[in-house]
Design a protein around this nucleic acid. Structure first.
Lengths: 234, 234
DNA sequence: TCTGTTATGTTTGCTAACGAACAGACGTAT
DNA sequence: ATACGTCTGTTCGTTAGCAAACATAACAGA
């Protein structure tokens, strides 16, 4: 039983609960390490565990017939995987892949469902988060429709930074391209442009953010919009 | 008190309830006419009523800062407006505009919340629909990212047809363009192409679908994908 | 019938992003 | 050291869709 999570960081959703409620919930959780490349969720699978990251980053990826996977959002210690269980749906809708190693609290699906029913405070918090997730989906839908690649790339980099609290992101242009649903060449061009503006620099497999405010200005409104939605709701 | 809704058509979500449960729920509803252009929901407003269309079509529209409104989905008698109340969120996230006149059952927000808590069967059905709505959002996000305008237009026309059970759609190219988040000229071009393939024809303010199967083939996978999601879940 | 408004058609030039292919630079393992 | 795989840079030709402007056609009301 885990009573102290500070040694591994903590999950911001669970932090919104009262100490009592959180401790009780954590008693049903297990701390697991999540490792780069690990797949926590496969679309169509029955949900066995719900994850609350406390460190590291997980990508939430959608695939539609005839197209590759692309990243809907990144999930760090501000969120959870997967919310659909809140609605009583026990089938995973998306793929979740670890993009930065770390740790997560995980809880068996059945116990999670039980806890939701027992603890109104818990479902209150998580319902609000579910609403954030829906709004994020609408935001990225609009973003895909209206915003240029360079801005979308800037947005994605900021999302990484925000969730890792680090200015260095270990990722290749090819991976970024797949996340954004575009060609690698497109990312090379956009990243080159951001570098020329002295906002970022990169070498083989890692991107360094030099000017966060500049990058915010170069990104689309969606980064700030998502953050606002989260802060307003939670 | 409404005990018989057949005279006005019915709502497919409510039809999934047992007769008893539905009759009881409808007792709290009021049948109202919804008229072309009427705005049922404005983003940011407090939710006063929840609507269950029984006839007609409502568009669910999102706006992000710096860009115009575009249509996330169309809602007919297969759906409801707005689901966020299911999660206890009483602020409207999107704009809802009547695109085809008809009727809807409406229920005050407070009573709706009460009913949800009282009737597990009701919340079961609506939770499933909420999941459909989330998946639709992901689908349109991918659609905006990967699919060509002509296919997206075909998709939208099929969505209209499906919800109105009519091959004639009263709408201008300019309105279709706004819905899709593109220029009117783009729609003129795409619609011209669909017409040349003998799938549709159109005159001043109305589009007629001549070959539904051909139009399905010309549309993107998203139309069928959304229908499958709905049918699998409900 | 005339006139103003709305809907559709078409053009020109431009840009973002695509697909495909290739070259060089950097690591790492043998 | 060499060889191989991976990552990044660059090119060429193509296309979808943008922005703006203008032309035609249909309808509605005075």
């Amino acid at each position: 039983m885990l009573t102290n999570s500070t040694a591994f960081g903590s999950n911001r959703l669970l932090n919104l609960l009262t100490d009592n409620c959180r401790q009780n919930f954590l008693g049903h959780c297990e701390l697991v390490s999540i490792n780069l490349g690990e797949v926590l969720s496969n679309p169509g699978d029955v949900i066995s565990y719900v994850y609350f990251p406390v460190e590291g980053i997980v990508s939430w990826e959608k695939q539609i017939s005839g197209s590759p996977y692309w990243v809907v959002t990144l999930i760090g210690n501000e969120g959870m995987i997967c919310i659909s269980l809140l609605l009583g749906i026990n089938i995973r809708p998306c793929r979740a892949v670890v993009q930065k190693s770390g740790f997560a609290m995980r809880i068996p699906a059945a116990i999670f469902t039980q806890q939701i029913e027992l603890k109104p405070a818990l479902s209150l918090v998580l319902n609000r988060y579910a609403n954030v997730v829906y709004n994020q989906a609408l935001q990225i839908a609009a973003c895909n429709l209206f915003h240029l690649l360079e801005r979308r790339l800037a947005r994605l980099l900021l999302m990484f930074q925000h969730r890792s609290q680090s200015d260095e992101i270990h990722i290749t242009q090819d991976q970024l391209a797949k996340m954004l649903g575009v060609r690698r060449v497109g990312v090379t061009k956009a990243a080159g442009s951001l570098q020329r503006k002295n906002l970022i620099s990169y070498i083989r497999g890692s991107v360094i953010i030099h000017d966060m405010n500049g990058l915010k200005a170069a990104s689309c409104v969606c980064y700030e919009a998502d953050n606002s939605t989260y802060n307003d709701m939670m």
